[in-house]
Design a protein around this nucleic acid. Structure first.
Lengths: 194, 194
DNA sequence: TTCCTTTCTTAACCCAGATCAATGAACGGC
DNA sequence: GCCGTTCATTGATCTGGGTTAAGAAAGGAA
C-alpha cells in the first residue's frame, strides 16, 4: 500500500494529473503514519509544517483547566494550517490523532518550489484557499446562529461519519456543550422524531 | 480630501511604496462613498466585487424571521470577501453601512493585473491572506470557548472603539445574545468591577 | 421647546444547558 | 474469562440567557 497515492487522489479531485506530476508527488512528498493519540503539535511548540490528512481523524483543541476544548475535527482531505505556522509564535492549541492517521506534511518553501515547477497549479491553489475560507465562514455563522441542539442536528446531517468514528464526549466538546447535555439532546431527539 | 489616499495608507502598513506604485493605486482604483444604511450586498444578490473598508463601519448579517443576526463588523482597513463572490451563488447575507463609509472595491481580474505589473506584491498578498485566516480562526475559537459575558469583556478589550460607535443592540446581536441580556451583563460588570 | 422615534434598562417568569452525583454499558488488558 | 478504566446515561438542582412587557433615556425633526 503506497501512502503517496492518497496525495495523488487529493489533487485528482481538482484536476487531471500528468504522469510526470504523479511521479513528482510520489517522490517529493513527506508522508508519515501516526498512531492513535500521537501529537502533530503541542501547546507551546512552534509549528514548522502544515498538514494534509490523507487518512484518519485529527482533533484540534485547547487545554483549559485540564479540560479539552475541541475546536475542529480534520478528516480525509482536510488541510491543516496551524496559526502557529503562520505567526511563528508558540501554539495555543494541540493537534492530535483521534485515529491512526496517514498525513502529508508541507512547508511554504516546498510549496513554492512545487508551484514554480508546475505553475498550472497556482490558480487551483488560490481557489482551494478561497473556497476553504468561504466554507469556514459559513460554518462559523452556523455556529453563532444555532442552538446546541440545532448544531448537533446540523452535524448529523453534514458530517454523519463523525458521529460514528468519534466518541460522544468529544462531539459534545466540539459542539461547545457538556457530555451530559449531548446525551439529553440525543434523548430529546429520539423521543421527538420530527 | 483624496479618497485614494486611504488605499495608499493601507498598503503602506505592509510595505514601502514607490512613486509609480502610488500613482497606479490612485489612478486605477474604484473608490466610492456610501451613506449610512446603504447596502454593499443584499441577500439573493451575487457579489461581483470584494471590498476594502477605508473609512466607516460595515455590518454583515443574516435576516431571520425579520431579525438581524450580525456576524461581523468591518472597520478601517478590513477587507471583505463575500462568500457569494467566491461561490458565484446568491448571497445568504447582507452587507450594509452602519456609518457613512469610504470603500474601495476590487475584482479578481484587477488584482491579477495589478500583481502582474508589480509581482513584488505577491508574497505580501499571500501573507495578508494567511494572517487574516489565522486571525479569524483565533476569533472563532474565542467565540466557542467564552460565555456571552466573557465575550463582551473580550470585545471591550480588543475593540473598544466598536462599543462607542455601534448601538448596543447591534453589539448584542453580534455577541449572539438579546439586547436585554447585554444590558444585564453590563450591569453585572458595573456592580462587580473586577 | 415639544413630540416622536429609537435605544436602553428593569422586572418577572421560563427553560436549556451546567453542575454534581450515581449508575450502567462498553472496551481493553491480562 | 475477570477486572478496571473509559464512556454514556439519568436524576436533582442551579443558573444565565430568553421572552414578554413596561417604562426610562437619548436623539432628531419640526
Amino acid at each position: 500500500m503506497d501512502a503517496a497515492n492518497f496525495l495523488v487522489d487529493y489533487f485528482s479531485q481538482y484536476m487531471t494529473l500528468s504522469e510526470e506530476e504523479v511521479q513528482l508527488i510520489r517522490n517529493e512528498n513527506l508522508i508519515r503514519e501516526y498512531k492513535k493519540n500521537d501529537f502533530l503539535l503541542k501547546e507551546g511548540q512552534i509549528a514548522t509544517v502544515c498538514f494534509l490528512v490523507l487518512k484518519g481523524c485529527v482533533k484540534r483543541y485547547y487545554l483549559e483547566d485540564g479540560e479539552e476544548r475541541i475546536m475542529e475535527f480534520y478528516t480525509e482531505n482536510d488541510p491543516i494550517a496551524p496559526v502557529s505556522y503562520t505567526t511563528k509564535e508558540p501554539s495555543q492549541y494541540f493537534l492530535s490523532c483521534v485515529e491512526p492517521c496517514i498525513i502529508s506534511t508541507g512547508t511554504e518553501e516546498r510549496t513554492q518550489l512545487f508551484l514554480q515547477k508546475f505553475p498550472r497549479f497556482i490558480p487551483i491553489f488560490v481557489k482551494i484557499g478561497d473556497s476553504l475560507a468561504a466554507k469556514k465562514q459559513v460554518f462559523l455563522d452556523d455556529f453563532k446562529n444555532l442552538s446546541p441542539e440545532n448544531r448537533y442536528q446540523k452535524l448529523v446531517e453534514t458530517r454523519p461519519d463523525l458521529i460514528n468514528r468519534v466518541p460522544q464526549y468529544m462531539i459534545a466538546s466540539y459542539l461547545g456543550i457538556q457530555p451530559e447535555s449531548l446525551s439529553r439532546i440525543r434523548k430529546r431527539i429520539r423521543s421527538n422524531p420530527k
